[in-house]
Nucleic acid binder design. Structure first.
Lengths: 333, 333
DNA sequence: CTGTTAGCGCTTTCAG
DNA sequence: CTGAAAGCGCTAACAG
């Protein structure tokens, strides 16, 4: 058995209270402090977080609910969340929703059962009903990447519409007018990015051709299919905006199957600067999200909420994006 | 406050012991069972896992130590581990070692502090000293993907040497004799795969040319550099075996920068059928690991060890691999 | 600053 | 099968 606070008591002759106080950073006579420290070392004592949790009602653990742990985007976010949390002495319990709202709901309950101090959620959809039980249990929740429809939770994200707007504006500024989009309309970020595309096009006085907007699921498969569709049009777009990582992958694959070249025959603008971008030739222009800040801010905000204890008004932290230039956009007349 | 077992006691008039027994699946008179169930429903009672953990000394949580959560390979493994564990009622606490043995060691202690029931480790290296403290604390450990040098822990993995042997054999069977390898020698799997390459080449009576073996770090950057080196040789290899995912990515990128085509000018054999393979053209031939089985077996074995409680002899589970055929290997004279 | 005394919510003897 | 009582390891009042 591991040593307990009682063993320290025997060893030092001090009371439990004094030792506990020391353990929690309270003031103790230098003499006693030394005794305690010596005993701790000798007995290899370590506090039992479980016992502590039982009385303080805090576990120093936060739950992370990810719609998918298979996506690199989320893996990167998880790393940043984890690093921030670890620095603060918190552990994280990661649950994979497998893109399924039912599993998500199960996971919320699982985490509540584990008495996590808070939850960072990358929700499956903006329909965040499953998180309501957390709210009921007064466990703070911070959403990441995707907000809740009725804005009842804190949220850290980017302005997807604006980011897309800027990306398309970039293409327009390079002389493109026939701009297509391959876009996932099945989830929030894709829909917002599509809005930004439309806005930029309309402002520039470009016609929004229906056949230039390929929309489908958030997947490589659809990216492939959507791009294939655009490429087979009689009047091909001169540039295509791909609204996310998976879609961009599929789209590039589709392009590779043809004899067309980027940027000579078609310009491309992607989203998310992840590992994949290194292997695609030519280097893609793309919208870059501040992944590190997103993870860190989410952790920071959650810890703040946990610390304050009280329910406050939900807030949103909206971070900026930038365009990383590659070699995939040609300037045209 | 949430309802406690005491509230159930008041509600039903039964004793704590009876209720606890019911909660743990013991036999209780039908009449009492109904009373308890009614009270539980009415009070929305849920057992407090923390309190239970304090007395049973089990948390129903396992720690997962991943050398990197950014890699897709690990993301996929994590999903399978998580699913298996969740089904068994276990949660997982994931720690990211960031490829750093020091952080790994810190994480082990963190997990022990959290009193996890067991640990699944994807270790940074085969030097598993950091895990010894877990052993000391009698917390079972199962290694995944990479074994420990002195075989003191259970391990679930593939036979890397054999898998590579088969891959190279495949190339040989297609008439290739000048086969190069781009290989990460900084970690276990890469070294083993290199051994398999050598073995196959030697058995086939092929000369092991030093200049055909580009070895370096486990990274996209090195994949790029290594492949570039092979491609610039006066007498280029006719086929190249890329020993892992990252290296393969970099290598393909290097090929894309040249005017050479696969498989006309050079044949390729990769490793790991992950998302990336869908975007590479032509479709790569590659060695496929049974990711799902690996995650599941690791979870299964760990739960078994947790259940039995006693220290048993370390065992290894070595799973088979197969070659997934694509369009990247040409048959030559 | 230190010690005493109660618990946190649950399981687990041990009688009955 | 059920109940009373003890205790897991720790913190938190409250006196002193």
């Amino acid at each position: 058995m591991a040593a307990t606070i009682r063993d320290i008591k025997e060893q030092t002759g001090l009371s439990l209270a004094t030792i506990s106080k020391y353990l929690n950073g309270g003031n103790v006579l230098p003499e006693n402090r030394m005794k305690i420290e010596a005993a701790i070392k000798e007995l290899h004592y370590e506090v039992n977080e479980i016992a502590r949790g039982l009385v303080t009602n805090r576990t120093r653990t936060v739950g992370v609910l990810a719609y998918s742990v298979e996506s690199i985007f989320n893996g990167t976010l998880l790393r940043h969340i984890g690093n921030s949390l670890r620095k603060a002495g918190y552990g994280l319990m990661i649950c994979d929703s497998c893109d399924d709202p039912k599993i998500e709901a199960e996971n919320v309950n699982f985490l509540l059962g584990k008495k996590v101090d808070g939850i960072i959620a990358l929700p499956v959809s903006t329909e965040t009903d499953s998180l309501k039980s957390a709210k009921k249990a007064k466990v703070p929740v911070v959403l990441l990447d995707r907000p809740s429809r009725d804005a009842e939770f804190d949220c850290v994200r980017i302005d997807n519409c604006r980011a897309a707007y800027q990306a398309v504006k970039f293409l327009l500024d390079n002389g493109h007018k026939r701009i297509g989009i391959v876009c996932s309309r099945t989830e929030y970020t894709g829909r917002e990015r599509c809005k930004g595309y439309r806005k930029a096009m309309e402002e520039a006085g470009c016609v929004l051709r229906k056949e230039y907007c390929a929309s489908g699921t958030h997947s490589i498969e659809f990216g492939f299919e959507g791009m294939s569709r655009l490429l087979s049009l009689k009047e091909r777009p001169t540039a295509v905006f791909m609204t996310n990582y998976e879609v961009a992958l599929g789209a590039v694959m589709a392009l590779n199957k043809t004899n067309l070249h980027c940027p000579e025959d078609i310009s491309l603008m992607g989203f998310d600067d992840l590992i994949m971008s290194h292997v695609i030739h030519p280097r893609l222009h793309m919208v870059v999200q501040p992944m590190k800040e997103m993870g860190e801010k989410a952790a920071e905000l959650l810890l703040e909420r946990i610390g304050s204890g009280q329910q406050e008004m939900a807030m949103e932290i909206v971070l900026g994006t930038r365009i990383s230039e590659g070699d995939s956009v040609a300037e045209i007349g």
